[in-house]
Design a protein around this nucleic acid. Sequence first.
DNA 1: TAACATATGTAATAGCCGCTAACATAGTCA
DNA 2: TGACTATGTTAGCGGCTATTACATATGTTA
Lengths: 216, 216
Amino acid sequence: MDHTLNADSSSLPKKVTAKAGYHHGDLRTQLLNAVRLLVEEKGAENFSIAEAARKAGVSTAAPYRHFEDKPAILKAVVLDAMTRNGEEMRRVMQPFPFGSIERINALGQCYIDFARQHPGIFRLVFGFSEKHDGDEDLTACGREVFGIVIEAVANYLDLPPNHPMAAERAYMLWTFVHGHSWLIIDGKTKAQDLQIDEGVMLSAVSDGLIASLRQP
Amino acid sequence: MDHTLNADSSSLPKKVTAKAGYHHGDLRTQLLNAVRLLVEEKGAENFSIAEAARKAGVSTAAPYRHFEDKPAILKAVVLDAMTRNGEEMRRVMQPFPFGSIERINALGQCYIDFARQHPGIFRLVFGFSEKHDGDEDLTACGREVFGIVIEAVANYLDLPPNHPMAAERAYMLWTFVHGHSWLIIDGKTKAQDLQIDEGVMLSAVSDGLIASLRQP
DNA sequence: TAACATATGTAATAGCCGCTAACATAGTCA
DNA sequence: TGACTATGTTAGCGGCTATTACATATGTTA
């Protein structure tokens, strides 16, 4: 339930309060923090490197010592967010029994929570073509995260993890939580005056699309 | 199956080939056409008013005689796209019997087709907060389009169109096609090596989430 | 028809931003 | 110490949004 993307106080930098000198000391990390804040604050399409640099207290040219260009800095933020979301997914499913439908529901809820808590980042991760369409790192990271879902579905359905049906049903679940996440952060759900219990809906979906396969 | 957003030869302008004079004659329409092309070509986040103006053969200041600012010109494109998509939805469901599940499936397929055929516009319609978050015109248009889906679901389930369950199940269908559309145009589906028949999946979803309610 | 009002174009400009080049400073290691 | 590398800065180019002042076409009315 935490999804903390903000303060990067873990893996503490070599110089925590390096401000006095000519060299910053920990600019890369603090730039990423600034970018995350700005993306959340002003939207990924209105964020500027220059503002991130000001926020970190350096000149507008300094970021280019650490990142090739704007797409590169955004890619770093995206990769970090995907990784953390994957970790969070593994965490939230752990309390529930192996092979249970509750594990699947927990994964879906985790995905939705992430979008709600970090809509700007979510928009950035998806939605933005920003030159990293076929990027290998991002693809690999995505496959790993989606693998968690496939595995949970396969375990529930008593299938080998590489069974096509597991991937197929996992994908259906993904489309659902993905679409719901987008509609939530775009305000479309509210605009339609829909009074829907999210948890109930999520259960209905996993029941209708996955649990229904257990008794043939 | 057409979703033609490009040539606006319908509702023909007063002067079709007004190019010679100081005044353009049909700048507003041609600007919108240029914007649509550019959004599709370079992505909504990289489109610029200046380039649209060049494409229409006028100075970079001219567009501001017809649109307040960048969000306004994008809003016009979005409204047009939503309207046309709504019309297309009404068209594709017509061949199927009133109250049939095929009508529902046709609506879903139409939504997905639109995204696949106009990914740039789709990204613009959703995904972009671009200052029209709570815009009344867009909200009204969206409610009207979504109303088509609610109605089809209500008819199939033999419910009054304002029954909460109709809206609820319609929303589930929406989340599914919306999420699938995003994943398709983001290339995520391909990145995951998923071999899924879209029509089969769509049927499975409407079966699992809607048809299952008919026999209680 | 002449004069005025309105609509719609241009040019010039201010203030952003992305990114690069040339230069400055700090840390590292022979 | 001296050379090399990493990481800052300043200055500047070209592109963008948006505004302002001015120019030209169109239409209305006396």
